[in-house]
Design a protein around this nucleic acid. Structure first.
Lengths: 338, 338
DNA sequence: CTAGCAATGGATAACGTTTTCCGTTACGCT
DNA sequence: AGCGTAACGGAAAACGTTATCCATTGCTAG
């Protein structure tokens, strides 16, 4: 690893000049063409790689964005982190990924580690799990950090004082349910969620609202998880009961895929026997023609990254882009026309 | 961010002592109990957070592991990166995640950026795409870095001189195909792959070998991709032809799920009409009861992380753990007993 | 003719650590 | 008594950058 000093020596200029040529500030402080050329030549022959570490130390900010994801294996969060990474790269930033495994305790330790690395900002992908012991503690720590100047942005409803970029979770479920109702379904069940997980709870609220307005009987199943497995289990429960609903709205695509998997293996036809829908619009549901509420996950991640990279330059808190319905295979209730 | 100097001042000791107390080397150079206590107290009241940046600069190595993943949305790589992160955390390391989007060009730029950040080592998740213009260039650059002392480990067959931790891809497909043959299937098709992607090509080799030995007719479809969508497309092609094979072996679980999705929507019964198997053992196939060759992805990632974190301390190049068959829903060919 | 300014380059002090090199003591041996 | 040595503590030099001051030159405006 050649250093700036070696370059300077070879080009017989000062390190200051070498720095100016190689790392940007040549406009603020002009350097003649000749010198530039010789410095660049020296850098080339020595194979200079700037030390991001030293730069970070000097400038008191590394070009690193810390990301704390609830569950990196969930396509929902994977998409978000991808969005963050792509946008971050455009600004010359890099992302440190920390997986919290849906555990507030881990979020806290990762948060601390990220701060040690002097990251420019920290993005939380995933919302609160209320009631969990670590949650309050985490909130306290984050608030302290925010007040101390650390840039934090949450990509989900969060109980701390950071910038938040959130879509209206209740609305997603509300609209999706309304769509199902508009097809003529009355018996619509809702599946999925984790107790205390605000995003999931909001979706249930949206579902209930839509059902209430339509004077249709609400049936909420679960709070048993957000995974494919949990969806499958819930579906088993559902098929064990006397009669299947006309349609099933799931808290996310993962759960929906799990539901699909069970119904399929049991022998039901989708969507003839029952319509299934998810929320998220992740790649996971694509091949199944899943009806889903498409969320701008990549864009959301991108906004967070941009917010941190530009130090909130342009608009202070960006407005989240909106979501849209992706209509896959759904059908009207049995007996009606498709 | 309180610094060591402030702590030292408050505790009225030297920074050297503060450093010794707070960051480890108290065994090498003893510090009395009293002083330790007062330093720790000072650190507590001031809320000291060590600057990983400064430490990295001083010690010439950051406790960061760089990860370059081919495609972070593919559960295969997601599992690996998760394994890396978990193990890295145990050693106090953190991982910088860079997504290459299956593009050698991007791998190269990310590799460079990672090096700028003085990472302790770099892990490549994903194998070569031969013939691609960037590949040779990347190899040259990586080899140079390796020779210069950068720790690089590849979690897949790679055309450069790094440490490699690879499972025998051909063997996975070979054993899986043999299993299918052992069930009595003769017409077994193979689906999936990307031209030039060595891991995928190895699997085809394994499949062909097994079929050849059994004197069964091989039918390889695709080299059209590794995604669910590509699996679906290939399955469409398959169902369009006159007759379906008895079984389908897919290059990975993603493709298998895509195949499943198509066969299902078209109305086939799995595994009664046709058996489908994948390779990877990722969570994606779990709810579908997919038969798959389970690969120790998390462990593989862990090994890579440990190798870098311990600077190859114990065993120089760890041997990869082996894989195993996960039997989901498969059946004997039609007409035979299950 | 000279003050003043743009253009160009260099010295050097940080940034927050770690670590090597030196003092002190105090103690156990010969 | 003399001395090696362990236990402790501090001073200060790095690590590779960037940024702030200065110094020099060559102009142009007054």
């Amino acid at each position: 690893m050649a250093t700036l000093r070696e370059i300077a020596e070879l080009a017989s200029v000062s390190v200051a000049t070498a720095s100016r040529v190689l790392n940007g500030s040549a406009e603020k402080h002009p350097v003649s063409q000749d010198v530039r050329a010789s410095v660049r030549a020296a850098a080339d022959t020595l194979g200079y790689t700037p030390s991001a570490t030293a730069q970070a130390l000097k400038q008191q900010r590394s070009k690193i964005i810390g990301v704390i994801a609830s569950d990196i294996l969930d396509p929902y969060f994977a998409e978000m982190t991808r969005g963050i990474e792509i946008e971050a790269a455009k600004f010359g930033y890099v992302t440190i990924l920390a997986n919290a495994n849906r555990d507030p305790e881990q979020e806290r330790t990762k948060f601390r580690v990220l701060r040690e690395h002097q990251v420019s900002g920290i993005v939380f992908c995933g919302s609160d799990i209320e009631g969990s012991p670590g949650t309050a503690q985490l909130a306290r720590e984050v608030n302290l950090a925010v007040r101390a100047g650390t840039r934090v942005v949450a990509l989900a409803p969060r109980g701390f004082d950071s910038t938040k970029i959130v879509i209206d979770n209740a609305a997603t479920a509300y609209e999706l349910t309304q769509y199902m109702l508009s097809l003529g379904h009355r018996k619509i069940a809702f599946i999925g969620g984790i107790p205390g997980l605000s995003a999931a709870e909001q979706r249930i609220v949206g579902y209930r609202d839509a059902m209430f307005e339509a004077q249709a009987p609400a049936q909420v199943l679960g709070l048993t998880g957000m995974s494919q497995e949990s969806g499958k289990r819930a579906a088993e429960e559902l098929t064990a009961s006397t009669q299947l609903p006309d349609a099933i709205v799931c808290t996310n695509d993962e759960v929906a895929v799990g539901v699909l998997a069970h119904l399929w293996t049991v022998g039901y036809k989708i969507p003839e026997d029952v319509s299934v829908a998810g929320i998220g619009g992740t790649r996971g549901g694509a091949v199944f023609g899943l009806t889903t509420m498409t969320l701008p996950l990549v864009e959301l991640g991108g906004l967070a990254a941009r917010y941190i990279a530009t130090a909130g330059g342009s608009s202070d808190v960006p407005a989240p882009p909106s979501f849209g319905l992706h209509i896959g295979s759904t059908s009207a209730p049995r007996g009606q026309s498709d």
